[in-house]
């Protein structure tokens, strides 16, 4: 029993990071109908920006904020300069654009920072642990879960309660109708991309202390986040959170009870299974093919 709880605790911590990544993916898919394959690399770029500041000895909090803002700016700029001008592009060519941008970013990071792994200094440690009942929780685990939940609720407040959030929902549902109400759809979408960039970079910063920082750090978490998004339903923000947490727990239980070696495969199995059994995801809306 304690063991099971242990797996759940570890799974939730990993899952909250997947949820952050998935939220970024779903946010963009819902509003601009683009699957952003550059999401992971954008996040890594944010972490590297923060890392550079920290190694120069600048104020720690300031560096993290700068990293988040940097990722936001690059994400919004990517939308403004490459995605938005491609007005008549098919969704496939947009996906390829994001793939190209991902390669560009990772190439840039290899060029500037090199491929060797770096230790990302972080105030919470993975080795200092607390015991709750029989469950061992490291500071980092507890921290990522807390920060993850904080960001998720922050996003939900932004989307549900603010003017910008209302405009974001309107533009996602029907950009043309939103423009006819004077809502500047382009600027609202750029803001959405910026928010997605912040979520990704935050996930990257929580992940970096655990896995060491290198230009390809987010490759695996991005795929997990993508699987979580598919699991929850590509159209649903709550779905992304539920999908992320579920995938995290399932993965940790799978590693514990079945096989650590094939842990990474699980997310792909999930994608295939969801697409076969319930293509709209757990909380998504069913598709209807119009003939």
């Amino acid at each position: 029993m304690t063991l099971a709880l242990q797996y759940v605790a570890n799974g939730l911590a990993a899952g909250s990071l997947y949820a952050l990544v998935a939220l970024g993916i779903v946010l963009l898919y819902r509003s601009s109908r683009v699957l952003n394959f550059a999401h992971g690399d954008l996040a890594t770029l944010g972490v590297f920006l923060a890392f550079t500041g920290i190694t120069r000895g600048w104020r720690y909090g300031l560096c993290l904020a700068a990293g988040l803002l940097g990722a936001a700016a690059v994400s919004a700029g990517f939308y403004r300069l490459l995605i938005k001008p491609a007005r008549q592009a098919t969704s496939l060519s947009l996906v390829i654009t994001t793939l190209g941008f991902a390669l560009l970013l990772s190439g840039l990071m290899v060029w500037v920072w090199g491929t060797d792994t770096k230790v990302f200094p972080f105030p919470l440690s993975e080795t200092r642990v607390h015991r709750l009942g029989g469950v061992v929780v490291s500071e980092l685990t507890a921290g990522s879960l807390a920060v993850g939940l904080f960001l998720v609720s922050g996003l939900s407040v932004l989307v549900q309660k603010t003017r910008l959030g209302l405009a974001m929902r309107a533009v996602a549902q029907n950009p043309e109708a939103a423009q006819l109400l004077g809502v500047p759809a382009g600027r609202v979408l750029a803001a959405t991309w910026a928010v997605a960039g912040v979520l990704g970079a935050a996930a990257g910063m929580l992940l970096a202390p655990a896995v060491l920082l290198d230009p390809f750090m987010m490759l695996d978490p991005f795929l997990k986040g993508f699987a979580a998004a598919v699991l929850g339903g590509m159209d649903s923000l709550p779905g992304a959170v539920v999908g992320g947490l579920l995938l995290g727990v399932a993965e940790s239980a799978f590693a514990g009870y079945v096989s650590v070696k094939y842990k990474a495969t699980l997310s792909f199995v999930v994608i295939v299974a969801v697409l076969l059994a319930r293509p709209e995801g757990l909380l998504g809306r069913p598709f209807h093919r119009r003939v």
Binding site: L166, N174, A178
Partner: peptide, 18 residues
């Protein structure tokens, strides 16, 4: 050009965005 999933109030609020 309404937003069917938003409430009447939210539909009106959108007109006040700009």
């Amino acid at each position: 050009g309404l937003f069917p999933e938003l409430t009447v109030e939210e539909n009106l609020q959108l007109a006040g965005y700009a």
